[in-house]
Amino acid sequence: MGKSPDGKSPEDDSPEVSRNPTEDDRPSIGRALQEARVAANLTVDEVSAATRVRVPIVHAIEQDDFSPSGGDVYARGHIRMLAHQVGLDPDPLVERYDAQHGGRPAPTLAAPLFEAERIRPERRRPNWTAAMVAAIVAVAGFAGFTLIGGGDDAGKTKPVAEGPTPEDTNTATTVPSKPAGEPDPSESAIAAAPRDKVTVKLSARDDKSWISAKAHNGKLLFDGLLLKGQSKTFQDDDQIDLILGNAGAIDLFVNGKKVEDEFESGQVERLSYTQGDPEVG
């Protein structure tokens, strides 16, 4: 093809092909949450009161600053709660967050049973038969010794070694009561939680709940849904931090004791427990 007087070919003068909008043209995570909140006619204070996410954190997230959340796990939880409150689907926002922050953190599977449940040595029962035989032999020996010891007294009536007297027999055959402090075999294994650790058990009673659990060093123990009827048990040497997305659906046991706080359905709770609890953190 020929060139124009300025040396350019006709293709050079053709208009540029317009680009299709890409995903980068979408508003940021914080901007999307802010626009949805405004569209829902909600204030930051109202969103904070409904989700239990503090006002400064809500403001920071709407500016795409996730550092006040305290880590990826908490940031993902905050995004989910805020999105639910303003009427957005949280999954695409969380996926974008993961893509921008190195991917979703891999959850660490919690031990299916804590130490006291996994290793329960069989208790040795007292051998009462052997104890009874030993007691009877001791009583018979004492009676025989008395008979032999009185042989020098010719004028005295010698006792007959007929075995233990009814009173002695009664003493020897009495079975002592169950040793103090020995747990009833029917008690739940959670009651045997070791005292040198903090043990937390979560059970979804009548609905599912999103939960997050972290150890004292910040290690993620679990992050996901606990479905109705499911249970998770977590254990750490010092402290376990929890976030319950639907606290009213959860039965909570700490160090072998049930936490009786009346959480409401849909309520978000942040809790921390250490040795010697239950005490809401």
Rank of each mutant, 00 (worst) to 15 (best):
M1G: 10
K3A: 03
G7F: 03
S9W: 07
P10Y: 03
P15H: 09
P15S: 05
E16T: 11
V17S: 10
E23A: 14
E23P: 00
S28A: 13
R31Q: 10
A32H: 04
L33P: 13
A36P: 09
R37L: 09
A39C: 01
N41C: 01
D45R: 06
T51L: 12
R52D: 14
V53D: 06
V53W: 07
V55E: 06
I57N: 01
V58N: 00
Q63D: 09
P68G: 07
G70W: 12
V73R: 11
V73F: 13
A75V: 15
G77V: 01
H78Y: 15
I79N: 03
I79V: 12
M81S: 05
H84N: 07
V86F: 06
G87F: 14
P90F: 09
P92Y: 13
Q100Y: 06
G102Y: 03
G103I: 07
A106K: 02
P107A: 02
T108N: 04
E115M: 11
E117K: 13
E117W: 07
T129M: 05
A131W: 01
V133H: 15
V137N: 07
V139S: 12
A143T: 15
F145Q: 11
T146E: 11
G149V: 01
D152A: 01
T157L: 14
V160A: 15
V160F: 15
E162K: 08
G163C: 08
P164Q: 06
P164W: 10
P166Y: 04
P166D: 11
D168I: 03
N170Q: 14
N170Y: 15
T173R: 09
P176H: 02
S177T: 01
K178W: 08
E182V: 15
P183V: 07
D184G: 00
E187A: 12
S188M: 09
A189T: 12
A192Q: 06
V198P: 05
T199V: 14
V200K: 10
K201R: 14
L202A: 06
L202C: 12
R205I: 11
D206H: 14
D206L: 11
D206V: 07
I211A: 11
H216E: 01
N217L: 07
G218E: 12
L220S: 00
L221F: 10
G224C: 05
L225Y: 03
Q230R: 12
S231H: 03
S231E: 09
K232C: 02
K232P: 01
Q235D: 13
D237M: 02
D237A: 09
D237K: 13
D238N: 13
I240N: 06
L242A: 12
L242C: 10
N246W: 07
A249T: 09
I250G: 03
L252A: 00
L252C: 02
F253S: 13
G256W: 11
G266H: 08
V268N: 13
E269C: 15
R270D: 10
L271Y: 00
T274G: 08
